[in-house]
Simulated scan of single mutants.
Amino acid sequence: MADMPLILHFILSAIATVGFSVFFQVPKDSLFPCGLIGGIGWTLYVYLFKVTDNGVFSAFIAASLLSLCSEILARKLKQPAILFVIPGIIPLVPGLGMYNTMLYLVQGDYNLGISTGTNTLFIAAAIALGVLVITSLSKTINLVELRKKRALNKH
């Protein structure tokens, strides 16, 4: 990652997220929140990666926060959470790792290709797991609250 200030990482990733949001036909009033979520997620990833030098951990925490912010905004803006999650995780997707994996394999450097591919796979899994954990937790909390309301209405 280039030595850029975190604010520049935030701005550029927010712009990229808004671009993908337009591509995914997100409603216009949700473009700014999508950009905000994508910027926060990527900036946290960059910060944690610089501190820990662990891409898998950084991706998991960033995806978890991104998913949590998406769930909160979904409730406030009365939109589905996936509307914010999908464009928001785009900056986190390890595209360079996928490219380098294929490049090393085509060049015949199998050890480096397998190593890079494994790391890329773990980062992708960490992103998916971060989103899955928060989404499942959110759905569980919503179900518990719904059951409490139903129980109160019966009495």
Score class of each variant (00 low, 15 high):
residue 75 R to V: 15
residue 89 I to C: 01
residue 4 M to L: 15
residue 33 P to C: 07
residue 25 Q to A: 09
residue 78 K to F: 03
residue 59 A to P: 01
residue 55 G to E: 05
residue 111 N to P: 00
residue 58 S to H: 10
residue 2 A to T: 14
residue 57 F to G: 00
residue 47 Y to V: 05
residue 88 G to S: 08
residue 70 S to V: 07
residue 58 S to Q: 10
residue 75 R to W: 06
residue 9 H to G: 09
residue 66 L to F: 03
residue 103 L to N: 08
residue 82 I to K: 03
residue 5 P to L: 08
residue 117 G to I: 09
residue 40 I to S: 14
residue 25 Q to P: 09
residue 112 L to G: 03
residue 34 C to I: 02
residue 56 V to F: 07
residue 93 V to R: 00
residue 120 T to H: 06
residue 47 Y to K: 14
residue 111 N to G: 13
residue 24 F to K: 06
residue 79 Q to F: 01
residue 37 I to V: 12
residue 42 W to G: 14
residue 71 E to Y: 00
residue 18 V to K: 02
residue 13 S to D: 12
residue 105 L to V: 03
residue 120 T to E: 06
residue 81 A to E: 04
residue 110 Y to K: 09
residue 76 K to A: 14
residue 28 K to G: 10
residue 111 N to T: 11
residue 111 N to V: 10
residue 28 K to F: 04
residue 35 G to Q: 08
residue 12 L to C: 14
residue 25 Q to K: 10
residue 55 G to H: 04
residue 44 L to V: 14
residue 1 M to F: 11
residue 79 Q to R: 15
residue 15 I to R: 00
residue 27 P to I: 07
residue 109 D to S: 15
residue 27 P to V: 07
residue 57 F to H: 05
residue 34 C to K: 01
residue 116 T to P: 07
residue 109 D to V: 10
residue 110 Y to D: 06
residue 38 G to E: 05
residue 120 T to Y: 06
residue 46 V to K: 15
residue 53 D to Y: 02
residue 69 C to R: 03
residue 106 V to Y: 01
residue 31 L to A: 02
residue 116 T to F: 00
residue 6 L to A: 11
residue 84 F to L: 09
residue 98 M to W: 06
residue 109 D to Q: 15
residue 20 F to S: 01
residue 89 I to E: 04
residue 22 V to N: 04
residue 87 P to L: 08
residue 38 G to V: 05
residue 62 A to M: 12
residue 68 L to N: 02
residue 5 P to T: 12
residue 55 G to I: 05
residue 106 V to P: 02
residue 80 P to N: 13
residue 22 V to S: 04
residue 51 V to N: 06
residue 60 F to C: 02
residue 74 A to Y: 00
residue 32 F to L: 15
residue 99 Y to K: 02
residue 50 K to E: 07
residue 18 V to R: 01
residue 82 I to G: 02
residue 107 Q to Y: 04
residue 101 T to N: 04
residue 52 T to N: 10
